[in-house]
Amino acid sequence: MSIRKISAALIGGIMLLPITVSAQEVSQQRIITSLDNAGKVAPQIDVMLLKQQAAQNPSGSAAGLPDWSKLAQLSQLVVELNFVNNSVAMEPESYRTLGLIADALHHPNLARYSFLIVGHTSSTGDAKHNLQLSEDRANAIKLALSTTFAIKPGRLFAVGAGQEYPIDATDPKSAVNRRVQLFNLGLLKL
């Protein structure tokens, strides 16, 4: 279990190369620092449009689509949460990381922001199935954060990207490509 910070190199116009942070280095402060975009102007993201575009193109590349490319401009964090194969059930070792994320989202620096949870899969299986699985996993994380950890559901949005943005493009079937990404969407709209 690890959290990966994002550096400046682009992959496919949206994904940024992760810097691996070991599980021992995962902390609430690291999460806050990665996701806090205070003072930055975040582009407007239409989550429903992202979902529509992904659904219309489940086996093609969404990287060139203007709405998906806007995500690269947001404060973000790649989180390795391990799921049971072909399931939305999280492996027990991932609960600590999810708890750290929840604690960070309650922190005053992040409490005024809303967040997009993007689910990703490896390329094992059918692209259309992977798109649905990635969205189901993002929704499972949203549900866990809002119910178990009392994050206001109105602060959280979920979408699946399927197998579109592998971290390890040389091995798209690698388990490292199954992950969740959090994007800071900016100030919470009341």
Results as ranks from 00 to 15, higher is better:
A89S: 12
A102P: 00
Q53D: 14
A54S: 14
N139G: 07
S75R: 15
S75N: 14
S61Y: 02
F115C: 01
A140I: 03
N109S: 14
N86A: 14
Y95G: 01
A111W: 12
E91A: 15
L110H: 09
P92A: 12
L74E: 05
G125I: 06
R155H: 11
L116P: 02
L98R: 09
G125V: 06
A140K: 08
A144N: 10
F83E: 12
L133E: 08
H107L: 01
A54V: 11
V78H: 05
A89N: 09
N82R: 13
Q73P: 00
D67H: 10
R112Y: 07
S69G: 02
F157S: 11
S75D: 11
I101G: 00
Q73Y: 04
Q132R: 10
S75G: 05
V79F: 06
P153E: 13
L81E: 05
K142A: 13
S87E: 10
I141K: 03
R96Q: 15
L156W: 05
H120M: 10
Q132Y: 07
Y113C: 12
E80A: 08
P66D: 15
N85E: 15
T97P: 00
I141Q: 03
Q53G: 06
T121E: 15
T148D: 05
P108I: 02
P66N: 13
G119F: 12
F157C: 02
G60M: 03
H106M: 03
V79D: 00
V88K: 10
N85K: 11
V118W: 02
T124M: 09
I141N: 02
S69V: 10
P108H: 12
R112N: 12
A89I: 09
S123A: 15
P66Y: 01
S61M: 07
